[in-house]
Write a protein that binds this DNA or RNA. Structure first.
Lengths: 337, 337
DNA sequence: CTGTTAGCGCATTCAC
DNA sequence: GTGAATGCGCTAACAG
């Protein structure tokens, strides 16, 4: 039957004590070769492998890393997660995935994970801990890294979104655009305020730098959803004096803008320039000009940093800033007139 | 300090025994109201929550569901996973994610997961267990469900890929195409043989049904990667007598075909019709005609089935067949001449 | 070097 | 109803 074989069975079979078996399991050096072989033979014979759970209970380590992601349906989040998976798969840690879809959910999750010490390390994607969260963090003392958000007291992997927003807008300006619309994510999104704020700030800085006045009518906000962005873009494009270029907060939204243009019979880039942000895969297929932030790489870097922190317990919170890069494809060009 | 608060602390604080605390934790009915309140107060005061690990050890359940996915970078796999996440997030189970990138990896993983009983249930995506795996499955007796693959002895969620392949090809034929290329995944892919075989079979059936001879030159195979598919499509399209339509095994590959057409200055659908399979999100943006298989839904159904199996221990392996649907967009049309 | 023992935190009998 | 004792499988500290 499937009657679990325990360390005791192995010990008996090998004619040794459980302590010895435990030693060879954790390859302690203090075991005679002959004994080690006997034990290993017994392990083979019994087809034994130790229970990670019991090990955890006894040792206080779960050998698991928790990954908290918001809106797992979001393309850029998935891309970051892929980076995380790629490094964790090669580690000895299991990856426990938590999806956060709303704020209540979020709080409960964080509290449980932290209090119960369910994991040895925590990777938080695109979510900024509140100040009250921080107490729990400090209390739980679980090594953590935030990807795409930051907190002074926590390790984080970020990009300079102000700069990114500036560069994107600057690209449009360089092309000769003056009437530049901006489609944003909700800035009061309870999850991850800074990137949406920063990117918009970059946009503002760029236009103000060259003396383009800010036109509130050119600003729209909605969720990270191409449908909704499409709708917002149509609003912008049917204005009496519509923008000749639109900067979208994310590629998903830029895709919505592209659809709006198509629906309205506008050619891109002849009649309308569109620039996105992220460089998700679809951006390439659609030949969308965008600000690339190394999504996958942010996951890789975050996971590696976490692993480091878990080993050395680096005392100082690190903040790694990843570069951002303008990728010019075929969705931006000079305004037609 | 972060000194974990245990059930014992709660018991002491409430002036009761640990047994009683345990009872209210698992809301056993056999507890007096007043006592229950005392205990709950203590729990609140101490900010206590039980350790899932200890609970597991004592009860034999890990409260975790393992999800094994191959090539986590694959868009359709991600989509299925999203469906799984959406239902598991609402359950009391944690989701432990395992990524399989090669066959050795795969075997080790499966063995470990099964032998160690790390999880209470297992969801396997797009991977078919070998016969030798099956021994382990039966031995471990862990409730399992396979999504997008099947095995007579295991629960599974599948689509009829032969039918899907037929329908896709038939659509091209109905449009008037005769010279129909096919770009496949590797059929000797060690992971998931049947869909790639089945879909091609559907293609063959469809053309033979109407008397179109099979032309081996119109067949190419490569990985599920748009780059590679692009290359293969260029081979097809630069043939002396090139196909007027191409059926790609997956949308990702169809996207590669689209790129090849663009590189070659071919208009889609005027000069070339392209049909994909899956209906991933990008397919919509690109207005790609494709065979939709409800990726997300397959994850949802799989997770739900697993949950059911874990509760009732349905003895009979279920096989749920999901429908497939032709989605006509703008990448297919009549051949130009 | 190696056997024995005492927990890890909780669920579960078993008496009271 | 409720408290005390036992065990889940393993590690670690302690003798020998």
């Amino acid at each position: 039957m499937a009657t679990t074989v325990t360390i005791r069975d192995v010990a008996k079979r090998a004619g040794v004590g459980v302590g010895t078996v435990s030693r060879v399991l954790n390859d302690s050096d203090a075991v005679r070769e002959t004994t080690r072989h006997k034990v290993q033979a017994a392990i083979e014979a019994l087809n034994y492998s130790p229970s990670p759970v019991a090990r955890y209970l006894s040792r206080g380590k779960s050998m698991a890393i928790g990954v908290i992601v918001p809106f797992f349906t979001n393309a850029s989040v998935v891309k970051r997660l892929q980076g995380i998976v790629s490094v964790l798969a090669g580690s000895e840690y299991d990856l426990v995935l938590f999806d956060v879809e709303n704020t209540e959910n979020r709080d409960v999750l964080l509290t449980n994970i932290l209090r119960r010490k369910m994991v040895d390390g925590l990777l938080i994607v695109s979510l900024r801990p509140t100040d009250s969260d921080m107490e729990q963090f400090l209390e739980a003392a679980i090594p953590s890294v935030i990807v795409d958000a930051s907190h002074p007291q926590l390790n984080s992997i970020v990009v300079d979104n102000v700069q990114g927003g500036r560069t994107a807008t600057q690209h449009l300006i360089d092309l000769g655009h003056v009437k530049i619309g901006y489609i944003s994510d909700f800035p009061d999104n309870p999850f991850n305020l800074s990137p949406v704020h920063d990117r918009h700030l970059g946009y503002l800085q760029a236009i103000q730098e060259v003396g383009i006045p800010y036109r509130p009518t050119y600003y729209r906000e909605g969720s990270l959803d191409s449908q909704e962005a499409c709708y917002l873009a149509e609003e912008l494009l049917t204005l009496p004096d519509p923008p000749t270029a639109i900067f979208a907060y994310s590629d998903m939204q830029a895709i919505g803008v592209l659809e709006a243009a198509r629906d309205l019979g506008l050619r891109v880039p002849e009649d309308l320039s569109v620039i996105g942000y992220d460089d998700i895969e679809a951006a390439e297929y659609l030949r969308l000009t965008t600000m690339r932030q190394s999504l996958f790489d942010s996951g890789v870097k975050g996971a590696k940093l976490l692993l480091d922190v878990m080993e050395d317990l680096l005392p100082q919170p690190q903040e790694i800033i990843l570069p951002t890069e303008l990728v010019i494809r075929s969705s931006t060009a000079m305004p037609s007139q």
